[in-house]
């Protein structure tokens, strides 16, 4: 996203994000009845909001193209990728393999997202966390979760 071709990149890309979301919402809502002000259908309020959101998005796109503004600071893909993957791993494993394995897997993946890595220390910490959570949440607080595969 480090682009110098757009004058106000922050405006441009946030406008683009909002406009895309608004258009997607309008598209998804297309089958719902709009109705009239006195007899509003389920589509009335959300479509109205989407249209205003689209207008704001288009305004920001325009401002980003015309006026100089702040650029988007560089993105680092590591944290966002590994943090998301670590949550995904937990979600996929918790019902199948049980809580302790899900936690260790999550910790192992999330550690890769940090720039200062000491894998062994994190792994030990993950095992400790798995043990502590199993005792505190499942045994003491009674959260219904599987402990074993």
């Amino acid at each position: 996203m480090r682009s110098n071709s757009v004058r106000g990149a922050v405006d441009f890309y946030s406008g683009l994000l909002l406009a895309v979301l608004a258009v997607a919402a309008i598209f998804l809502l297309r089958d719902l009845e709009i109705g009239t002000a006195s007899d509003m259908g389920p589509g009335y309020f959300p479509v109205a909001i989407s249209i205003v959101l689209l207008a704001v998005g288009v305004f920001l796109i325009g401002r980003g193209l015309v006026l100089d503004g702040p650029q988007v600071s560089g993105m680092n893909w590591r944290p966002i990728l590994f943090v998301s993957l670590s949550l995904l791993a937990f979600a996929l494993l918790v019902d199948r393999a049980g809580l302790p394995i899900a936690i260790v897997a999550q910790v192992a993946i999330a550690t890769l997202g940090s720039s200062e890595r000491s894998f062994l220390q994190s792994l030990l910490f993950g095992i400790a966390l798995a043990a502590a959570s199993s005792v505190i949440f499942v045994r003491l607080l009674g959260v219904p979760m599987r402990l074993f595969p």
């Binding site: 899900a102 936690i103 200062e116 000491s118 994190s122």
Partner: peptide, 20 residues
Amino acid sequence: VPYRLLFLLILVISSIGIYS
């Protein structure tokens, strides 16, 4: 407590909380 351990704790507790 270094952040590289703290963030792991945050992620694990959040996951359990959201799941439950």
